[in-house]
Nucleic acid binder design. Structure first.
Lengths: 221, 221
DNA sequence: ACCTGAACACCGTTCAAGT
DNA sequence: ACCTGAACACCGTTCAAGT
């Protein structure tokens, strides 16, 4: 993005050292998160890797959190792409639902440090009004889910309901699965340790089953 | 715990300044987490509040993470108590399930910083073999859930299944709800922002509905 | 406009030394 | 056994000064 000629001119004028430090910092941060398992890195180290002084990032980001938010936004864009790819599969709608859920969890398992950062940063985005880019990226990823749910409801594959409200339940479920798996909590309980893939599969089936039934089950006295 | 006379003797000998610095640090940390919204505090600040030098904690904890793990373990013990109190209500079993889920989410909403720390520390506990106290506290809290599920299955209120596997699904669901709520992600999506209590109520009903149905839904071609 | 170098106020952690 | 004081190697951030 931002390939407009004006920007190219500015870049070709060349900030005499780097050209495009902003993007360099973001992609270096992404790479660091992929390599290292933990989601914390220092701004100084990142600047060092990019070959720039410790103060240089402050010309492009207000503070460390702003840089983290930019990286998290890139993560949400990738997540959305992964989810839409999973939905585009040519199978039936119910399978698409299951594939969507699996793809969500797999994204977290494949990029645990990035995933953790994404939700740590979403917290900042929610508290402060800033980080609009991050917020928009997050909502777009959520939209991929609600669109599918609405389609399934229209075709009678799910009980009628508010797609957005159901979407929140589904999101909470897959987010919880992802979180427990990548923090290792799932491996902590049970003898022997449960297989993530099986837990996810059974769990999504359970959720889908609930979405087929009536919204409010009859009270049992 | 650890009220054995031997320990009392040691305490009465008095480390000439504090007596029981270990517990003092843990409870000061707990108090700090309740007051401040964020889950990060510095070891130096904690030592300052307790009235001790910055190096003093190292006589009781290997490093900062070990202290955080001890605080997290205390959090899991409180969580378990909250869950068991919710189950003890005299209503029917299905309502107990809903109360249990609500109590879980409410615990997170009431102590957001502590809740985040608990799962950040569980990660360390899972990776390293250490922090046995934390691990045990976490598993005990999980046990309160599986016990209820087993009881409901026996009475035919839920479809037959492995209570531990179903427990993981339920745990993932309520953990996801809690996480999205206390990070503010839930408030980010939807117009107007959804009410946490309603989302939780609808979500738990959905989950319960899924647990009543067949474990494996028939494939729809 | 973009970057550097040096500085500031902090960290977590170590270690000799005190009681 | 438990704690202090001083030190070490770091942080994030600011700011004058350079190009």
């Amino acid at each position: 993005m931002k390939n407009c000629p004006v920007r190219r001119l500015i870049q070709s004028k060349q900030g005499y050292h780097h050209g495009d430090l902003r993007n360099a910092l973001v992609s270096a941060g992404l790479k660091l998160l992929e390599q290292e398992g933990h989601s914390e890195f220092t701004l100084r180290d990142l600047a060092r890797r990019v070959g720039v002084s410790a103060a240089a990032p402050y010309a492009h980001f207000a503070d460390k959190r702003a840089l983290l938010a930019a990286i998290a936004a890139a993560g949400f864009i990738r997540l959305r792409a992964a989810l839409e790819a999973a939905i585009r599969s040519d199978s039936n709608l119910a399978d698409r639902f299951l594939h969507l859920g699996s793809a969500y969890v797999r994204f977290g398992m494949d990029h645990p440090a990035l995933y953790k950062l994404m939700f740590a940063s979403e917290e900042l985005a929610a508290q402060h009004g800033e980080y609009l880019e991050l917020q928009a990226a997050g909502e777009a990823a959520f939209g991929a889910l609600t669109a599918l749910l609405e389609q399934m409801q229209r075709r009678g594959l799910l009980r009628a309901g508010d797609p957005e409200a159901d979407g929140l339940s589904v999101w909470a479920h897959v987010h919880g699965l992802t979180s427990l798996i990548i923090t290792g909590c799932l491996a902590c309980v049970g003898e022997p340790a449960p297989q993530p893939a099986e837990v996810v599969s059974l769990s999504l089936q359970l959720l889908l089953n609930g979405l087929r039934g009536p919204a409010r089950a009859e009270q049992i006295a």
